[in-house]
């Protein structure tokens, strides 16, 4: 039972980690909390729903298409709103992202319908057994996909020129601009990357929970923001750690408290960490 909860926690943690990375990238480069992350997750999930229906029921096809859709959506969002918001007070841009999240969620409800759509179950066969619990292939795939993305991101950030630009912009965008980095393009790219992460998380969630609905992104979005704060909002390894820890803690907490209250865990962690250790587990000290 305990092992089962931990495995479930790690699987859910993969989703949180991907979303937390999305928050961390945007916060790191733009010093902006993107509230619409949950909506991008929802868009990823709907993309996979329609891909499964009309193109192919292969999970990986959905993942690839949703990543592209997420990237493009991120670029569009960035172009439309956040570019004009640079230099505006941070809270105004947060409220603006809330506007986007409302807009996208409700647009999805109007376009796709408010009802919950059912996704087919794939890869439900048992992969292997640990301590008397079955681990299904889908869980293995989810954890692997998250791991691949995490490693890929680290490579991209630390081994490529674009990664160098992103890191430079996140440290000090003015100086980065003076060093000949195209700040606008770097920020757009980082935003797209973050949105693609959210989209991929949405696809995995759609397959894992077998359901897609317009407000599916709200709660995971909030919880993974907690995870990002938990791990340190400016640090990608921190976001990953926070995501997995939150997933595991949440599932273990269900042993102690009623399962109806599980969603509270993330918020309590958020409040406690913001009050006691605002830089999170691994984050660098940030002037809040």
């Amino acid at each position: 039972m305990l092992a089962q909860q931990i495995i479930n926690g790690i699987t859910q943690g993969s989703l949180f980690a991907l979303l937390a990375i999305s928050f961390a990238i945007v916060y790191g480069t733009l010093r902006l909390v993107n509230f619409a992350t949950g909506s991008l997750y929802m868009i990823g999930a709907y993309t996979s729903f329609y891909v499964v229906r009309h193109v192919s029921s292969n999970l990986f096809v959905s993942l690839a298409i949703a990543a592209v859709v997420g990237f493009v959506m991120g670029l569009i969002l960035e172009r439309l709103a956040f570019k004009s918001l640079r230099g505006v007070s941070r809270i105004a841009s947060l409220i603006c992202t809330i506007g986007f999240s409302l807009f996208l969620n409700e647009l999805a409800a109007v376009v796709f319908g408010r009802e919950t759509r059912v996704m087919p179950s794939v890869h439900t066969g048992t992969a292997f057994r640990i301590a008397g619990t079955n681990i299904i292939w889908l869980q293995v795939i989810m954890i692997l996909v998250a791991a691949v993305i995490v490693i890929g991101l680290q490579l991209l950030l630390f081994k490529t020129k674009m990664g160098l630009s992103i890191r430079a912009v996140s440290l000090d965008y003015k100086t980065a601009g003076l060093m000949g980095i195209n700040v606008d393009r770097t920020i757009s790219f980082a935003f797209g990357l973050a949105s693609a992460c959210a989209g991929v998380a949405g696809v995995l969630a759609a397959f894992y929970y077998n359901s897609v609905f317009p407000v599916m992104g709200t709660l995971p979005g909030l919880k993974s923001f907690s995870a990002a704060v938990f791990g340190g909002l400016t640090s990608i390894p921190g976001a990953i750690l926070g995501g997995y820890l939150l997933g595991v803690i949440e599932n273990l907490a269900v042993q102690v408290i009623s399962s109806g209250y599980r969603d509270i865990v993330g918020f309590i962690i958020l409040v406690v960490f913001l009050l006691v250790r605002p830089r999170g587990l691994l984050g660098r000290k940030i002037p809040m």
Binding site: L85, V88, S93, I98, G99, L102, L104, E106, L107
Partner: peptide, 14 residues
């Protein structure tokens, strides 16, 4: 309704 509210919020701030 909420689509409208979202749009209004964005428009006001931008």
């Amino acid at each position: 309704r909420m689509v409208l509210y979202g749009l209004i919020l964005i428009m006001v701030i931008v």
